[in-house]
């Protein structure tokens, strides 16, 4: 616990160092990229909760990012076009994100968590596609093209915009969700969740019902990702069905795996690695997805524990 607190202190120190550096370099693109990274990392933290600790591979987790994003987008649409400015209230939007994320998580969880293994993956993928198609078919809200968020969320008169403000809010949100997941995973609840991953029958024999624990974990992960979507819409100023496309869920899985499953800081490390890879390779070649794919195949073939796994293995051995 003390060791973890030290790690958190270091993390906060690093996060605080980014804005001064960006200010010094006069590089707002860097700051914006860092914000995007932190927001995606908090969604990866959510994915890690169900996948790393719960052993559940969801190919539909981007749905919750979409929920958070579309709450902001739809509110902005009506605030801007129909003069319903009260919809821009950020507190109200957050309550909507919370309620919708919980409802959708319960629906998806009830349908998918009673099945096993490979079915969970296919069902989350299919339900994710269902929400994606719903967004594509919502012509009032831009359909396939999405919509620009003209009216950002407002908290007590302050709009959630500006590179520095978004950065600080994202950094605080990431730290908070990491802390929450770290505390959850070492709690009694987290131990049952992890034990159900390792051996479901024994967990049941000890008197715990894996289904219920998983449903709670899935719901918490949904809410965290919903919050990430809320931030993402305000940061990008744009929402579209691409936010909840199934490849976004695939990216989240890749980030978590690159960072190392079931580790507290892994999702952030994996997100940084993934975005850095994307930035560097897309600068070199138009066909940057080919080396990214090749790296994924190589990682799957040779390093089952991911980038963080490599680091910790080296630490353990030397």
């Amino acid at each position: 616990m003390r060791k973890q607190l030290v790690s958190f202190a270091i993390l906060i120190g690093l996060l605080c160092a980014v804005p001064p550096i960006a200010y010094w370099l006069d590089d707002l693109f860097l700051l914006s990229l860092a914000s995007r990274c932190l927001i995606l990392a908090s969604a990866a933290v959510a994915t890690n909760l169900i996948m790393g600790y719960g052993g559940l591979i969801s190919l539909g987790h981007a749905v919750f990012i979409g929920i958070g994003g579309y709450v902001v987008g739809i509110a902005s649409h009506h605030a801007f076009n129909d003069g319903m400015t009260w919809l821009s209230n950020g507190f109200l939007q957050l309550v909507a994100v919370l309620v919708l994320s919980v409802l959708v998580a319960l629906f998806v969880g009830l349908v998918s968590l009673r099945t096993k293994g490979i079915y969970f993956l296919m069902i989350t993928l299919a339900i994710g596609q269902m929400f994606y198609l719903a967004a594509v078919g919502a012509y009032d809200y831009g359909g396939d093209d999405g919509m620009t968020v003209f009216a950002k969320s407002r908290f007590l008169g302050q709009a959630l915009s500006g590179h520095y403000l978004i950065y600080w809010v994202s950094a605080a949100y990431l730290t908070a969700s990491m802390f929450l997941v770290a505390r959850l995973s070492s709690s009694r609840f987290g131990l049952v969740l992890r034990s159900a991953k390792v051996n479901e029958a024994r967990t049941r024999a000890m008197g715990y019902e894996p289904f219920r624990v998983r449903l709670v974990a899935f719901t918490v992960a949904g809410v965290i990702a919903g919050g990430a979507g809320f931030l993402m819409a305000n940061h990008a100023g744009f929402v579209s069905p691409a936010m909840l496309h199934w490849t976004r869920s695939g990216d989240l899985i890749v980030m978590v795996v690159l960072g190392g499953l079931g580790s507290v800081f892994g999702p952030l490390a994996g997100t940084v690695a993934f975005l850095a890879l994307e930035e560097v390779l897309s600068g070199i070649t138009e066909y940057w997805a080919i080396p990214v794919g090749a790296i994924l195949i190589a990682v799957a073939l040779y390093t089952p524990q991911g980038v963080m796994g490599l680091l910790s293995r080296r630490r353990n051995h030397g």
Partner: peptide, 29 residues
Amino acid sequence: VLRHFYKRHHLDQVLVTFGFILILNEVAR
């Protein structure tokens, strides 16, 4: 590649075939 993955965890299989999707889509493009 894929024959090495029959006994592996589903997550590894997802990762490797997701990698193939990225590559094959780009190759087609």
